[in-house]
Design a protein around this nucleic acid. Structure first.
Lengths: 335, 335
DNA sequence: CTCTCCTCTGGAACCGGTTCCAGTCTTCCA
DNA sequence: TGGAAGACTGGAACCGGTTCCAGAGGAGAG
């Protein structure tokens, strides 16, 4: 109605409705301890005044923020967005909690984010995606009593939703072996200061599978570089330029697999005839491109992370459990 | 330190440091009105007690939330994620404000989001991406005094960052005309209750360009359906199955262009020899696929939206200006 | 008719900050 | 030497909710 006027408060409502603030509060919170008569009068007054309770004041007196924070490198990896989607959807189903987003793309930002969030006051709980917190950071959050759940990353002291990356590497490799490939290349991430280890674990799984098939893994066939399509193109080029290039390439992520495909196209290498390519994640674009890949249920892991976090927040101090999400090869046209 | 203990408050700090709460508050806020001696004593006490100010209490007494809300259909369109990225980056540069995320995928959620946010109390400002608020919703927010900026959507009463969709359609079409195409098809969005009009405006631009070139636009060549790759495949199939199929297709978005490419591949139609395809947006995958497209600076529009919003929040009541982002064809391999 | 119990109520106290006001102590100038 | 201005301080009041406590009124039991 009238702009600039101070917004009506619960006391204004109480005065107009000729009741006490306690009664108004009880009406707002659907307490049964209010007579019907008082209830309708308060409701009417609320409408008339256009009163809206202040969530900040509510938070303060309740001592809860009704918000959960999500810290993740959202834009470096497509898969994080997909996980976020699961988080958002599940959180909405549950109602109640708002979502505070913290994007982390550099080391500085990482430190800032943990510093800022380790305050039990900003959020009621924290979801950390694809970023490994240091021991000190974990200790700090635990001191503060802040519930934390990890997704796609492991810390022995915290509950987490992850996949068995070694197994993932084995699955991909077994698939290629079953197709008759003996010379299998790998394109993955170089170690990063963030402590992203999944690429390495997948490579480890690949080597294990190769050995089991009686093939000696060759370091020369395993290429690593910064995560990204452009970088993967480069790595794939060097593999394809070898005297005896691999007949198949396992990429540690779909994004990197796309780089491999692009390199193959540039060099006139036919896929899958001359080169089989298998990725990892099954992001949305994989379907468009017809990329054969190892599917991990990205959205579901996000949703599951939210569930774990909410139960941690709502009292049940959960053990630092590890939940493993299922993996499977999705066969399409590239392998 | 000690878990479970009530967190120290500003009064605890004051007591231990033997000063008044006012002085502690002044130290926290870097006020010059504190003697160095008091300052160091307070600082020391803060460290000793492990005191952290409550942002909720601060918000309450300041009457500001230091948060901005972003409402958008994040997961229906790839381009929204890219815009969000611009928002996040610019917001981080500015410091100060946290980001509260509201995803809207259905009509109900849409209503909820506006209902929940139109409270001046939850956020200091609102960024609405690709969703047209109704007149009542706009009126309500203005009554509440909530600063709002729109991105990728227009409302005459609100400041906004948009592109000239009609011009975009013309640019795409002129490009195809210059390549000698005379029979140009269109794949776009069916009208939605959300009031997404950009697809239609782009089509309008296409028709204008055709007419200018002396070609009569044919309704039969313009196909519309729900937004999405799968749906676009269907639309493209029907175009390609015509007696005289178009030699080029303008898709209203890159996602739809991908559907067109997929349909072409299925039907053995060579691109660009038999069919030229041009998309719109220039999302990241466009580069992978070699899709020729009309680039709109997605990330920049997000960033610009943040700037407008922050200046609106910080007093300068900005006029409901319209900012137009630049457009250009990115030539790749599909047209 | 009295006593108890139950329902409903008003309002003070509290959550943890910020801000304003009144007051003290210096310093400096006339 | 008096007075004003300036630097710094403590603490009450405030932000707008929730909760607890004491108390009023009515119903039912003995």
């Amino acid at each position: 109605m009238r702009r600039g006027n101070p917004a009506p408060t619960i006391r204004d409502v109480a005065r107009h409705a000729k009741v006490g603030v306690g009664t108004v509060s009880r009406v707002l919170n659907d307490s049964p301890l209010v007579s019907d008569e008082a209830r309708v009068r308060v409701r009417k007054t609320i409408d008339e005044l256009g009163y809206r309770p202040s969530s900040t004041a509510r938070r303060l007196s309740l001592g809860r923020t009704q918000m959960i924070g999500v810290v993740a490198p959202f834009f470096t990896t497509r898969s994080v967005v997909e996980r976020l989607r699961g988080v958002v959807e599940r959180l909405r189903d549950r109602g109640e909690y708002d979502l505070l987003l913290f994007d982390v793309e550099t080391l500085d930002q990482r430190a800032d984010a943990f510093e800022a969030f380790a305050a039990r006051d900003r959020v009621d709980g924290l979801l950390i995606v694809s970023l490994r917190p240091s021991d000190e950071e974990v200790a700090r959050m635990q001191r503060e009593g802040l519930p934390v759940v990890l997704i796609d990353v492991t810390h022995r002291a915290l509950p987490r939703v992850v996949i068995d990356d070694v197994l993932g590497g084995e699955i991909a490799t077994d698939y290629l072996l079953a197709k008759g490939h003996r010379r299998i290349g790998f394109v993955g991430d170089a170690p990063t200061p963030f402590g992203f280890a999944s690429s390495e674990l997948r490579c480890h799984g690949m080597r294990a599978a190769l050995r089991r098939a009686g093939i000696r893994p060759m370091a020369a066939l395993q290429k690593r570089g910064p995560h990204g399509r452009e970088e993967a193109i480069e790595l794939a080029r060097s593999l394809l330029a070898m005297d005896k290039p691999p007949s198949a390439i396992f990429a540690a992520s779909d994004v990197q697999a796309m780089g491999v495909l692009q390199a193959a196209e540039e060099l006139g290498v036919r896929v899958p005839e001359d080169l089989a390519v298998i990725g990892f994640d099954d992001v949305e674009e994989a379907a468009v491109l017809g990329l054969t890949t190892v599917r991990q249920p990205l959205r579901e892991t996000g949703a599951r992370g939210v569930e774990l976090l909410l139960s941690a927040i709502e009292g049940r101090e959960i053990a630092p459990v590890e939940e493993l999400a299922p993996l499977a090869v999705v066969e399409r046209r590239t392998a």
